[in-house]
Computed example of a mutant assay.
Amino acid sequence: MQQIQINNNKLYLVSKRIIDIIFSLLGIILLFPICIIIAFLIKLEDRKGSVIFKQVRVGENGKTFRIYKFRSMITNAEELKLLLVHQNEASGPVFKMKQDPRVTKFGRLIRKTSLDELPQLINVLKGEMTLVGPRPPLPEEVEKYSSYEMQRLRVTPGLTCYWQVNGRSNISFEQWIEMDLKYINERNLFLDIKLIYKTIFVLFGSRNAY
């Protein structure tokens, strides 16, 4: 198995954490009005369901945590997933459908613009996630990982990475893994800032998000 080298320079890690705290705090404060509007519209479409969706994900070194997202699916989406597994359009252990019937009308909009991910700024502030890093997978996905693929769990998961700016849902699982390991090997402050900049322009209205 090819062992991926990781940039664990202390100065880089400290600087990365400082940037995470500053940007996540600013984001939470500045985007709060937008979050209130999103919460209102979610409730307007489905009053029974909660505004925030919490889900267990796998973080650095296999440690689990609860990720926060604006709910974009119907309330019993997790149960219905079992009935849709045979319609999976993604490769590897990941489940994705372009026309997932569990997604609400407003949910499609916030997923298309990635506004459903805004609550993860709280995960970043708490240190469970970082602004730039491999996306945190589901436990059932990790169970199917090879030892090579497990290497993507050696760093703190993030909001964005190469995958988000290079095709997103149209990228195969194998390509996704290679992109994550490429980031882990190359990561530095300049690269992080570059990916954040690219993400702002790619995610909002991306045709490859679903």
Rank of each mutant, 00 (worst) to 15 (best):
V58C: 03
Y145F: 13
F106I: 14
Y12D: 03
E89W: 08
Y197E: 09
R108N: 15
R47C: 00
S72C: 04
V51D: 01
E141L: 06
R71G: 00
N185M: 01
G92P: 08
A90Q: 13
F53G: 02
L121H: 10
L125T: 04
F173P: 05
I67S: 00
M150I: 04
V142W: 11
I74F: 01
I36C: 15
R135Q: 14
L189D: 00
L13D: 03
E174W: 11
Y145I: 08
I38C: 02
R57V: 03
E149S: 06
F70G: 02
Q151R: 11
I110Q: 01
I4H: 04
N88V: 06
E140Y: 12
G49A: 12
D46L: 03
F70E: 00
I22W: 09
D192F: 05
I29S: 02
C35W: 07
K16F: 02
R17H: 06
Q87L: 06
V51N: 07
P136Y: 06
Q175D: 15
T160H: 04
M73R: 00
L25R: 05
R154N: 15
E78K: 10
R187C: 01
T75W: 02
Q120T: 11
I110E: 01
M73W: 00
L11E: 14
V142R: 08
D180I: 00
V103A: 09
N123A: 09
Y183W: 12
S24K: 06
Q5L: 14
R108L: 13
E149Y: 07
Y197Q: 07
G205E: 00
T130E: 09
L25E: 01
D192W: 08
D116V: 11
I110K: 07
I18Y: 12
V94I: 03
L191M: 04
N61G: 03
E141F: 09
Q151T: 05
D46Q: 08
E143Y: 00
V155L: 12
E79R: 08
L83R: 12
R168Q: 14
S206E: 06
L31A: 08
K16Q: 13
M97C: 12
N9R: 13
F190Y: 13
R152E: 09
G49N: 08
F32Q: 14
G107Q: 05
T199E: 04
L191S: 01
K16D: 00
S24F: 07
V124A: 09
F70T: 00
V85T: 13
K48W: 02
L195E: 03
L31E: 01
M73D: 01
N166W: 01
A77I: 02
F204R: 12
S91E: 15
V202Q: 14
N166M: 11
P136M: 09
Y145Q: 09
F106G: 00
G92K: 01
N170V: 05
I38Y: 02
L189N: 02
F40V: 12
G62T: 10
L118Y: 06
L31P: 01
E60F: 07
R207D: 14
E45R: 11
D20G: 05
T75K: 13
S50R: 15
